[in-house]
Amino acid sequence: MRVSRMTIAALAVVAGLSLTACQNGDAATDRNDSGASSAASAPSSANGGSSSGDSAQDTAKDSNKDSSKDQGTVAGTGSNKGGKVGKCRTDELEVTAKDATIGGDKDGTVAVEFTNGGGRDCAISGYAGVDLKTNAGSLSAKRTGEQAPSVVLKDGRSVSFAITYPVNDSGGSGVRITGLVVTPPDETKSVSLDWPGGSSLPVTDGSGTPVKVGPIGSAGQGG
């Protein structure tokens, strides 16, 4: 009977040990599953970190692009506001006129020169307004119709245009010229000059002006 009791006790101990081992095994399995689960979620965290890094890099790239644009604007500005070349104003131009008639030509020529003294580059194109003062009243020159180039006139540089008129070889006094009025293109302020050409024009039948004006640049561009 004593032997049977010992056997039963021994079996109980073995069963207890087996139960403990099973519980420890299950706990280890749970820990392994938890670790595996954490490891499985790690790539998502890593991807999240990469995405944040890409976002920061994109922000830096965009910032660099914006910075480049700003530098481009500054570099293109030069001495003119906003990088644009404004038109030449009458007050910025020194206006002079001289006789440019070539011997043998049937018409006389006067060259009018604009010199940029405004301290900045400026744009000028088209036709200047030209009026001759005469003893018979004011006489407006007619445009030749030539194409007018666009000119960026550097500070200190000059550009000219030509006025042509018929030479008075009639033997009579003709129409006496007393002065010249020039208005730069796209301006309303005029400059009055002495007339450097022939002293008179032949009398016409009044059908039209005999005086013609060429576009800016038609008499060459000086230095």
Rank of each mutant, 00 (worst) to 15 (best):
V3F: 14
S4T: 14
T7L: 13
I8D: 14
I8A: 11
A12F: 05
V14G: 11
A15H: 00
L17R: 00
L17D: 14
L19M: 13
L19S: 13
T20V: 15
A21H: 05
A21D: 11
C22P: 05
G25E: 07
D26I: 12
A27E: 11
A28E: 15
D30F: 15
G35P: 09
S37E: 15
S37I: 15
S38H: 10
A42T: 09
A46P: 02
G48I: 01
G49A: 10
G49S: 12
S51F: 06
G53K: 03
D54Y: 10
A56N: 14
D58P: 06
A60V: 08
K61M: 10
K61Y: 09
D62T: 01
N64V: 01
D66R: 00
D66N: 06
D70M: 06
Q71L: 14
T73H: 12
V74A: 15
V74M: 14
A75R: 01
S79I: 09
N80E: 15
G82D: 08
G82V: 09
G83L: 01
V85C: 07
G86A: 10
R89Q: 12
T90V: 04
V95R: 01
V95Y: 03
T96P: 03
T96L: 05
D99M: 04
A100W: 00
T101Q: 12
I102W: 12
I102C: 14
D105H: 07
T109R: 12
T109S: 14
V110Y: 01
A111C: 04
F114D: 04
G118M: 03
G118N: 01
R120C: 06
D121F: 01
C122G: 03
A123P: 08
G126R: 01
A128T: 08
A141H: 05
E146N: 11
E146C: 10
E146Y: 12
A148Q: 02
P149V: 02
V151P: 00
D155K: 02
D155F: 00
G156F: 03
R157D: 12
S158H: 07
S160M: 09
F161W: 06
F161K: 04
A162P: 08
I163H: 03
T164H: 03
Y165M: 07
P166C: 05
V167G: 08
G171Y: 01
G174Y: 04
R176Y: 03
I177F: 10
T178M: 06
V181E: 09
V182Y: 06
P184L: 03
P185I: 03
D186G: 13
K189W: 03
K189F: 04
V191I: 10
S192P: 04
D194R: 00
P196W: 00
L201P: 05
P202C: 08
V203Q: 09
D205S: 09
D205P: 00
G208L: 01
G208M: 04
K212Y: 00
V213E: 08
V213I: 13
P215Q: 03
I216N: 05
Q221H: 13
G223K: 14
